[in-house]
Design a binder for these strands. Structure first.
Length: 564
DNA sequence: CTGGGGATGGGGCCC
DNA sequence: TGGGCCCCATCCCCA
């Protein structure tokens, strides 16, 4: 490897993330390098600003705001979070440092509340899913409580706030952000929800603020419906009481509405017009895509929510008493339960094979009847399943939309890419640095081979926790913002917390994140001004392709250098 | 290791 | 609300 290769070789260390977390957790337990102490009702939790900024949107915004003061993360800080129950805070910290959330069911609500307050989306989602039904029951009361809180709440004193240092309040704007941030602590305002914050004299102690409740599914539904009905103003205008409060509450558990690529920096000013970005565009924060790995389910919800044409079916999620999993869809719980009981009530009359589901039996029966209802239009092949046909069709088209970002090998199927990624061949190939171009062109860059980065990167999307450590803007590269928003935003507060997190991760940490790796290439190439949309197109896909091509061109150039 | 077929479980839509 | 049907993601197995 030549010196010029820095940043180009991505050698994944799958265990690194875990080890890193483990070490950080050790440091936390021993207080080593801890530069932030969270307190809750007397309990103190030493932690690391970088970690908290990486895992929590709340802190990300908070520290991003503070960076402007030159604090640089060097000052020892105390953040009083009395609004988060100590047990919940403890659980959330455990999650942050271990990727595992361990909580008693009785404490679920507190954890949910804390996750919402701190902007830990995946935890909030998980808790909310589990609490879905019961939260509904409390919805009305909680709503009233929040409305009352909003009317009466006031800022917690700065001495309880984030920085106990002597940082001057030179920037009223920034102070205001922190203030609204504290409202968040009580009324669940987002740190940047300034348009609807209620700055008030810092008189009340944060401890005096009653605890808050997470929004119920009904509230979310109401909110969603409002959005769907185009009634955006109703929930955006300040001073709308409960409805406004609902909007405030929504900021942290904003789910991805759709899989379409979030706009890059160049289109951020359009965010406010986008349904999914509503309420955040004015902050320039890409919030609607906070969630990380959009599951198929989430994408489904997203589609129905934004598609406009489809109504969002009111589904009452049911919780599996065995695995606690929330099963969506009416009548789906019995079906799910059979996966636990092993009950297979549907038996094939021909061969006696039993199935847990009758639709599977029906498909199975096609074997006996010879029915293959999915014929390939290009060849005589016929298939039992539609997805088999889909897979098969990729053979005809030659499309290999799933490409390994490390070795650039392209696959026709996502699961094959995943399998490839799990193995070591990828690492091996990449280390050898085979010639790229022609091979790739044959494999996946043909007509249909215009790689679908959306799928490709999405397939490589990080595990939930790891993703939670990535800045949303970066994570969203997987779902399409890959329009090439730069990894860092010079002068942008978003970058600072993220950089801090990266610093904590170290260079190897980056290698563990494929899409990050790609973006690092871009940065390294001195393309920070990418945000200016140099390609002249605002098409996310076009931009992404353009961007990826340039990255590869860059690789090619460096290979040439290497040969020299 | 890769390509391909099949199995499994979950969610959405519809009745 | 339950269930049928379908699609999807993922996993497993085999050549």
């Amino acid at each position: 490897m030549s010196p010029g290769e820095d940043g180009l070789i991505g050698i994944p260390f799958p265990e690194h993330s875990n080890e890193l977390l483990s070490h950080l957790n050790d440091q936390r337990r021993t207080g080593l390098l801890c530069d932030l102490t969270l307190t809750s009702r007397g309990a103190r939790y030493p932690t690391h600003r970088s970690v908290m900024a990486a895992v929590s949107l709340y802190f990300r915004r908070l520290f991003g705001t503070e960076e402007g003061h030159g604090e640089g993360g060097g000052g020892f800080s105390v953040c009083q979070l009395d609004c988060v129950a100590p047990d919940a805070l403890d659980a959330l910290l455990e999650f942050a440092y271990t990727a595992t959330l361990t909580i008693p069911s009785s404490g679920m609500r507190d954890v949910l509340r804390g996750a919402q307050l701190l902007g830990i989306q995946c935890v909030a989602d998980a808790c909310r899913d589990i609490l879905g039904e019961t939260a509904e029951a409390e919805g009305e009361t909680a709503e009233k409580q929040r409305a009352q809180h909003l009317a009466t709440e006031s800022m917690a004193g700065r001495e309880t706030g984030v920085e106990k240092g002597s940082r001057r309040k030179t920037d009223r704007k920034k102070v205001k952000k922190v203030e609204s941030h504290h409202i968040n602590s009580s009324g669940l305002n987002p740190p940047h929800a300034s348009p609807i914050s209620h700055p008030s004299p810092a008189s009340d102690s944060i401890r005096s603020l009653p605890s808050t409740q997470p929004p119920s599914p009904e509230q979310e539904e109401h909110h969603l419906n409002s959005r769907q009905n185009g009634d955006h103003r109703a929930i955006r205008e300040p001073g709308r009481g409960a409805a406004l409060n609902g909007e405030l509450l929504h900021w942290l558990h904003e789910r991805p509405r759709i899989a379409h690529p979030p706009p890059g920096p160049t289109s951020s000013d359009k965010l406010s017009e986008d349904d999914e970005m509503e309420g955040f565009g004015d902050n320039g924060m890409i919030m609607g895509t906070t969630s990380i790995t959009t599951s198929a389910a989430e994408r489904g919800v997203a589609t129905s929510a934004v598609g406009g044409g489809r109504k969002r079916k009111s589904q009452t999620p049911q919780q599996c008493p065995v695995c606690q999993k929330i099963i969506h869809g009416a009548g789906k719980l019995p079906r799910h339960m059979r996966t636990h009981t092993g009950e297979k009530p549907f038996q094939c009359s021909a061969c006696g094979v039993r199935f847990t589901r009758n639709d599977k039996l029906k498909i199975h029966m096609r074997k006996h009847t010879g029915e293959r209802p999915y014929p390939c239009p290009h060849c005589p092949a016929r298939f039992l399943h539609s997805y088999d046909l889909k897979n098969h069709l990729s053979l005809h088209s030659g499309a290999r939309p799933f490409e390994c970002p490390l070795c650039h090998k392209a696959f026709a199927r996502e699961d094959h890419l995943q399998r490839h990624r799990k193995g070591h061949s990828c690492l091996e190939l990449r280390t050898r640095r085979p010639r790229r171009g022609p091979e790739l062109m044959e494999d996946g860059r043909g007509e249909g081979g215009r790689r679908d980065q959306s799928n490709s990167l999405e397939a490589l999307s990080l595990q939930a926790h790891s993703s939670a450590f990535l800045h949303p803007t970066v994570r969203d590269g997987g779902s399409g913002s890959g329009a090439g928003p730069p990894l860092m935003f010079p002068g942008d507060e978003r970058s600072l917390a993220f950089q801090a997190a990266l610093a904590q991760l170290g260079p190897h940490g980056l290698a563990a994140y494929p899409d990050l790796f790609l973006r690092r290439l871009e940065l390294r190439g001195g393309r920070e001004e990418e945000g200016e949309d140099p390609g002249g197109t605002h098409s996310p896909t076009a931009q992404r392709d353009h961007w990826v091509d340039e990255v590869e061109d860059e690789n090619g150039e460096e290979e040439a250098e290497e040969e020299e």
